[in-house]
């Protein structure tokens, strides 16, 4: 049965589907992007072409993944676990406000706000964090979405080596270069400023 369904799907892989169309049984396939599970059935939730991806070798689940691809995607929306690129707008004693610009590798179409709390800036000595020595307005930061937060903003974290400030301008207007995990230097004046710097690969 599984073989027949997957073979059949392979033959018709170019067929366009619309929301609500039956794609397969949840016992034999995993619902990917553009599909959802209703009872024991997998149904399409977007308009596009369906594709079946075989399971990765060595995975415990030997079901193939069915997805609906090639559709017009809506703007990216931050979700817990996403890595975002954001611009710092306001720095206060206990938190910093940011505007999210990119989610994973996709630009957002709408404005999403985020908050980096004092305890989420770094993993160690979280009680000694000085927000003004970690971020400044205008800095571009890479952060992890922790949760939906309150009605106003998403809670973000930079408490990993690869998270933090990726680009910052000095007072004199030059783009600063990181010299350590806590410092950035202006190439024009040589002035050193404190930041929570993201480790660049």
């Amino acid at each position: 049965m599984v073989g027949m369904m997957i073979d059949g799907a392979g033959e018709e892989a170019d067929e366009l589907v619309t929301p609500g169309e039956f794609l397969g049984e949840a016992t034999q396939l995993v619902a990917g992007k553009g599909a959802y599970v209703s009872g024991r059935s997998i149904l399409a939730s977007l308009t596009g072409r369906r594709t079946i991806t075989p399971p990765t070798p060595g995975s415990s689940d030997n079901r193939s993944t069915i997805e609906v691809v090639g559709h017009k995607a809506h703007g990216a929306v931050p979700q817990p676990g996403s890595i975002v690129i954001a611009r710092v707008t306001k720095v206060m004693a206990r938190n910093a406000s940011v505007d999210i610009m990119c989610v994973d590798s996709k630009a957002v179409k709408e404005k999403f706000s985020g908050i980096i709390r004092q305890q989420d800036v770094r993993a160690t000595e979280i009680d000694k964090v000085d927000m003004y020595q970690s971020f400044r307005p205008g800095d571009i930061v890479r952060a992890l979405v922790l949760s939906l937060g309150d009605a106003r903003a998403y809670y973000l974290s930079t408490a990993k080596n690869e998270l933090g400030v990726v680009s910052a301008q000095s007072i004199s207007g030059g783009t600063m270069v990181p010299i350590s995990w806590t410092e950035m230097q202006c190439p024009l004046t040589g002035q050193i400023e404190q930041r929570k710097v993201a480790k660049v690969d």
């Binding site: 027949m4 059949g8 799907a9 018709e12 609500g20 039956f22 209703s38 009872g39 059935s41 369906r50």
Partner: peptide, 21 residues
């Protein structure tokens, strides 16, 4: 009304048990 149920899988008819709304 919801759109009429449809399957895109050839040779697999929609069974009565399938909870398509």
């Amino acid at each position: 009304f919801p759109n009429s149920p449809l399957t895109v899988i050839p040779k697999v008819p929609l069974s009565k048990e399938q909870p398509i709304e």
